[in-house]
């Protein structure tokens, strides 16, 4: 089916749902339906809408249909010696680019190479009234109009059916290495302050007394950094596991998983949490109430986001003050006035 036909079909489905006031559940590869609040509504499956729309390797930008599996995009750009600028978590080979945009998560490279939101240059979306709109574009700098493309990132599909995304790419580094060092959290932070910006880090995680460092860059630079860091050789799998939220090996069970987003130098508290992003992102599996987790994040100077777990009634984020919550609600209403798209997935309010 051509893009125009597919867009027409999705627009028609959304329009019909809009008229009937019935919610739609947007499904990419379906591999991450366990994230967020309970899905609701008739399925709108994007997986068949896959493939590359435009890719000019010399430009370091790719435009793909939302149903394209992340691994397919990676393979396509790898053939030209390139990688996605943002490292994308996935639950399986079925996880799609559209799903990645909806969840808005970025892997361990985030402090060093930027977030997915940073790498999104443009989108095509179908709004909750069934209109096909285009925002942003395929160029690096663009200040015409509000930045609606980035607004889609992390919105859990509640602001639009993402049809197409343009993403920034980077050259694939020549060489990579992983080192593991035994130290306490304070020691880890001190080292990271010294090394970040000076050594070619692309990941820094800390769990159970071990600092895991991932390096990538020119072979000589990586070699020199490895010598300076010392420690022992580690496995790149540790970082793919952290990227994909498979944290059991680091002592975090797969149940009731939270992210705490905090100033990186904050204490490692609780000590059983895993620190990623050099400390700015902490993973914590806990049976504690949402209120207790939000309070803990606030004590550390940050905020918490619920990833997955058996209790699917709580909002993904803490409820902001009423006036700000109302502002979120009004923005939601602009793009999806009847709450058709992924109703209740991010917040019980919409």
């Amino acid at each position: 089916m051509s893009d125009i036909e597919t867009a027409g079909r999705v627009c028609a489905m959304v329009q019909a749902a809009y008229e009937r006031h019935t919610p739609l559940e947007i499904i990419g590869g379906g591999s991450r339906r366990h994230f967020g609040r309970e899905p609701l509504g008739e399925p709108l499956v994007l997986a068949p809408h896959r493939g590359i729309v435009a890719y000019e390797p010399s430009e370091y930008v790719i435009t793909v249909r939302a149903g394209t599996p992340i691994v397919d995009v990676e393979a396509a750009v790898a053939a030209h010696g390139q990688v996605l600028a943002a490292e994308l978590p996935r639950a399986s080979g079925e996880s799609t680019i559209g799903g990645a945009v909806a969840l808005g998560l970025t892997g361990p490279s985030r402090p060093y190479a930027g977030s997915l939101r940073d790498a999104v240059l443009g989108v095509r979306i179908v709004t909750g009234t069934g209109q096909l709109l285009r925002f942003g574009g395929q160029v690096l700098k663009n200040v015409a109009g509000f930045d609606v493309s980035r607004l889609m990132v992390g919105a859990y599909g509640t602001l639009g059916v993402v049809m197409e995304v343009s993403l920034r790419l980077h050259p694939r580094p020549e060489e990579g290495a992983v080192r593991v060092l035994a130290c306490d959290w304070a020691g880890a932070r001190a080292r990271l302050l010294d090394w970040a910006g000076r050594l070619p880090l692309t990941g820094a995680c800390y769990a159970r007394g071990l600092l895991y460092l991932r390096l990538a860059g020119r072979a000589a630079t990586v070699g020199q950094a490895v010598r300076e860091i010392g420690g022992e050789a580690g496995s790149a799998d540790t970082f793919s596991a952290v990227r994909d939220l498979r944290l059991e090996a680091l002592g975090v069970p797969a149940t009731a998983l939270w992210r705490l987003l905090v100033p990186p130098a904050a204490p490692l508290d609780p000590p059983a949490s895993v620190a990623d992003w050099g400390g700015a992102q902490r993973f914590w599996a806990t049976e504690e109430s949402a209120g207790a987790v939000h309070a803990q994040a606030a004590r550390l100077g940050g905020q918490a986001m619920r990833l997955s777990g058996p209790d699917r009634h709580e909002d993904v984020w803490a409820t902001p003050v009423p006036a700000t919550m109302a502002l979120y609600g009004r923005v939601k209403a602009v793009l999806d006035p009847r709450g058709i798209l992924n109703r209740g997935r991010l917040s019980a309010m919409w």
Partner: peptide, 22 residues
């Protein structure tokens, strides 16, 4: 007064990105 973003520039909806360049 509203607070948008946080230590990692994230929030329930990315109104921070919407405001920057507005």
């Amino acid at each position: 007064l509203h607070e948008l973003g946080g230590p990692t520039a994230e929030g329930p909806l990315d109104l921070l990105a919407l405001v920057i360049g507005s």
